[in-house]
């Protein structure tokens, strides 16, 4: 559960994530992820839809989502890439957008696009089990199971890596056939659990 203290300012949160509040709050539905008409159209087109509300007022607001773990990420101007389903709420000052992810998204069954959060402030991520933060440096690239990936920040290049060989075709696969390989400089958030993915069973 996440407690947010508000003093007249506002946060953007996933629709329906509020479980309780103290004080005066107003909840306003924002269409299409809260970045104007253009963003709304983009989200419709890309399928990376996000139901967002704006919470404004004085007091404390409590958010939760299916008893998942909540992880706070502080952003100082950098960009956070996260799946819309894993984003619980953000400071109103943070800008959200969509970006193309390519093959990784399709392997996760999450579509080809992902949500970006940019600016300075805090964002709350939900994950199944407390997320592990892993640093990637040019010397130590990281491979992540697509089903366990939650989010990442920093200047990272992602490749889709597959260990499929002829043995996979005859049913003796390695079971960990697909990974996302992160190279560069940044942080990757991984959950201790695997979503069901299209590639996950291969």
């Amino acid at each position: 559960m996440l407690a947010v203290d508000l003093t007249g300012d506002s946060v953007k949160a996933k629709n329906g994530a509020m479980v309780a509040y103290e004080g005066d709050m107003t909840f306003k539905k924002r269409t299409g992820g809260g970045e104007g008409l253009r963003g709304m159209v983009t989200r419709r087109l890309t399928g990376e839809q996000m139901e967002v509300m704006e919470v404004k007022g004085h007091g404390t607001c409590y958010f939760a989502d299916r008893a998942s773990e909540i992880n706070l990420v502080s952003l100082h101007g950098e960009k956070l890439y996260v799946e819309a389903g894993n984003l619980l709420c953000t400071d109103a000052a943070l800008r959200t957008g969509t970006s193309f992810t390519g093959l990784r998204g399709s392997a996760q069954g999450n579509g080809l696009f992902t949500t970006t959060v940019e600016g300075t402030g805090q964002a709350a991520l939900v994950s199944h089990g407390a997320a592990i933060v892993l640093r990637v440096t040019p010397q130590t690239p990281l491979q992540v199971d697509p089903g366990a990936y939650v989010a990442h920040t920093g200047n990272l290049k992602q490749h889709f890596q597959s260990g499929v060989n002829f043995r996979a075709l005859i049913g003796e696969s390695g079971g960990e056939a697909f990974q996302i390989r992160f190279e560069g400089e940044g942080l990757v958030y991984v959950q201790p659990s695997e979503r069901n993915t299209i590639g996950g069973e291969i």
Partner: peptide
Amino acid sequence: MVAYYGQIGFQG
């Protein structure tokens, strides 16, 4: 396996 560093291969 959720993530790994280094050179690791997985064999059936």
